[in-house]
Each structure stands twice: as structure tokens, then as C-alpha cells.
Simulated scan of single mutants.
Amino acid sequence: MSEPYIRPARSADEEELALLDRAAWSTLHAVSPRPEPPYPPFFGERHPPGEFLVAELDGRIAGYVRIMQPIPLASHAHVLAIQGFAVAQEARGRGIGRALIRAAVAEARARGARRLTLRVLGHNTPARKLYESEGFAVEGVLPGEFLLDGAYVDDVCMGRAV
């Protein structure tokens, strides 16, 4: 089994990332409606390629993580956030998610951040366990923040020092 190769995203990755993102959509982690045609571009002014790291496995993109400054103020420049994370269904269980989270922590550190934060739905147990195993701690919970599939779901705020 080959190891994932993590690299910065390139503009040429857009179509493959868009397909992966749509295929990975689930109410386990998504709060917006299922994407429908016409699909918006994956990259754009608000989501440039420079915010993404991608995982390649056997020459194909198998996942991505998006790291950005959530509040664009100088006083908040020391905090980065994971705001987008997906692993292709066929690549799950092969360490891709863990490699992407570790790469996100290293990237945040390289960009001079002191903290890395994220939000995860309360019912997303696999993701929460992964984040906790990589040093993220629950820093707050917004109870019943989203109504998904007829049930109210907590929004869990997590963070860690980098």
C-alpha cells in the first residue's frame, strides 16, 4: 500500500477536487444542501487554490484540507482554521485523513500561526475521534445549531496550539 503524498493544490486540480467534494457530500459533515447543477467553481475569490492541501494516492487526488484565516484582521492573524476537509470514499481507512490533518498543522505552523481551529458536527464521531487523536480539544459546543435530516445537531468548536 502506497503512502499519500501531500502537496499544495494547483489550479489544474479544480475539476478533480470538485468531483471529490460532490461525491463526499453527506449530512454527517455538510450543513448546506446537496450540490445540484449548475455547480459553482470549486476555486474562486473566496476559496483560492493557495488555501488547499491535497493528498495524492497512486497518482490521483484522494482528499483535501482547506486552511484559511477565519477572521481577516491583523489582531487575529495568529489563528488559522480548517474550513473544508474531505477524503474520497474509496481511499478511507488508508491514513489519508490523518496525513492531511498533520499536514494542516505543519502548514499552520509554517505560516506563523499559534492556533488551528475547526468546527465539526456533533454526530460526526469518526472525524471527532481523528481530531482528538491529533491534539484538538473541544473548546465549545453550540447545541442544536443545525437541523439535518429532521434532527437537531450540535456544532462542536475544536482547537489546538501549533
Rank of each mutant, 00 (worst) to 15 (best):
M68G: 04
D21G: 02
Q83H: 15
L57F: 10
R94C: 00
L142S: 10
L53T: 02
L116V: 14
G112I: 06
I6D: 03
D13L: 03
P72C: 12
S32W: 10
A88M: 00
D154N: 15
F85W: 14
A88F: 02
Q69F: 01
E134N: 13
W25V: 04
F85G: 00
R60K: 14
E45R: 14
A86I: 08
V87Y: 10
D21C: 03
G144N: 14
P70K: 04
P41T: 11
Y39C: 10
E15M: 12
E14G: 01
E132M: 12
C157I: 15
H47R: 06
P38D: 06
S2I: 06
Q69W: 00
T125F: 11
H76C: 11
A81T: 11
A91S: 02
Q69Y: 04
P72Y: 11
T117E: 15
V105K: 05
G144H: 07
R60I: 00
P143K: 00
G59V: 07
V141D: 05
E90C: 01
D13H: 00
A24D: 09
V54K: 10
D21P: 01
S75V: 14
P38G: 02
G135L: 07
A81K: 07
L118K: 09
A23G: 12
A24C: 13
R94I: 02
L57I: 05
